Simulated assay, not measured.
Amino acid sequence: MIGSCARASSPTLLVAGVIVHDEATNRVVLLQRSENAKFAQGMWDLPVGKSEPGEPITETAVRELYEETGLAVKPESLKVAHIIHGAWGVEAPNGFRTVVFVAHEWTGEPLNREPRKHAQVRWVAADAIPDAFVDTTASALHRYLTNGPAVSLDGWPRT
């Protein structure tokens, strides 16, 4: 019982990610984590970040996308592309849930607005996604692009 009480005292981390997909050119906006990033240094990733207390997940997605890339999207234009449920993660010893949205409408051009966290932010062809990619978001992106399963489990025992 002690383990279950301890686990219940720390909430599951809620995270939002955004796939900005230009369907006309079949490219997506990606960022490369800098050598100063908290995790996955040098790896590619989607714009992604933690939800603030009391913040709706769509607002988290809008805020994080703008903070990291300068791209603006309307919360109502976001569509759920994928859900990741991780058993544990960086800053998430009791697990995380990442809701990955897709945006087909945005304003602005991708910029690296957080150069201490990211080495670069840019458009990448959907058929040329870098191999050095954070596993969970790489899976979500691949599954979105191939119309694969909409939910992934990471770090859970296989049954």
Rank of each mutant, 00 (worst) to 15 (best):
V151S: 00
V121Q: 02
D127K: 04
V29S: 01
G155A: 14
D154R: 15
E59L: 12
K74E: 15
E59D: 08
L78Q: 12
H104F: 04
G89Y: 05
I57G: 11
A8W: 03
G42I: 00
N94W: 06
E68G: 06
W123G: 08
L71V: 03
S139Y: 04
F39I: 01
T25C: 02
L30N: 05
A40D: 08
R113Y: 03
H21G: 06
R63C: 03
E35S: 11
W44T: 00
L46Q: 10
M43N: 08
S10Y: 01
P130R: 01
E68H: 08
A16T: 08
T107C: 13
T146I: 04
P157Q: 13
P11H: 10
A40E: 07
A40W: 09
V80P: 00
T159P: 10
I57V: 15
P53K: 15
V99Y: 08
A125R: 14
S4C: 09
W44G: 02
L141T: 08
S10M: 10
E91V: 01
T146H: 15
L65N: 04
R113V: 02
H118T: 01
I129E: 10
V62F: 02
R27Y: 01
A138K: 15
D127C: 05
E68W: 00
H118K: 10
D135S: 10
H21A: 10
P75S: 14
G54N: 08
M1G: 14
S10W: 05
I83Q: 07
M43A: 12
K50R: 15
L65F: 07
A126E: 12
L111R: 13
E64Y: 00
R122V: 11
A6C: 10
I19R: 00
P149W: 06
A8T: 06
V80E: 12
L111M: 07
V62S: 04
W44M: 06
C5I: 15
W123D: 05
V124R: 11
E105N: 08
M43Q: 12
S4M: 12
W106R: 13
E91D: 14
N147K: 15
H142R: 15
V73L: 07
P75K: 13
A125F: 11
F39C: 10
I129L: 14
A150I: 01
V80Y: 04
K50M: 11
A37C: 06
A103L: 09
N112M: 02
W44S: 03
H104A: 03
L65M: 08
R113Q: 07
S77G: 05
G86R: 00
P93G: 14
S139D: 05
V100I: 15
L13F: 05
T58N: 12
S34F: 07
S34E: 02
R122N: 09
G54E: 01
R116V: 02
R27P: 03
A72N: 13
E23M: 10
W123H: 09
E76V: 09
E52R: 15
L31M: 14
A24D: 09
P47Q: 13
T12M: 14
A132K: 14
V62H: 01
R143W: 03
K38H: 04
Q32C: 12
E35D: 09
G155I: 00
N26L: 02
L71S: 10
V73C: 08
I129G: 12
E76Y: 04
G95E: 00
R113C: 05
P115Q: 10
G42T: 07
P115D: 05
P93N: 13
T146P: 01
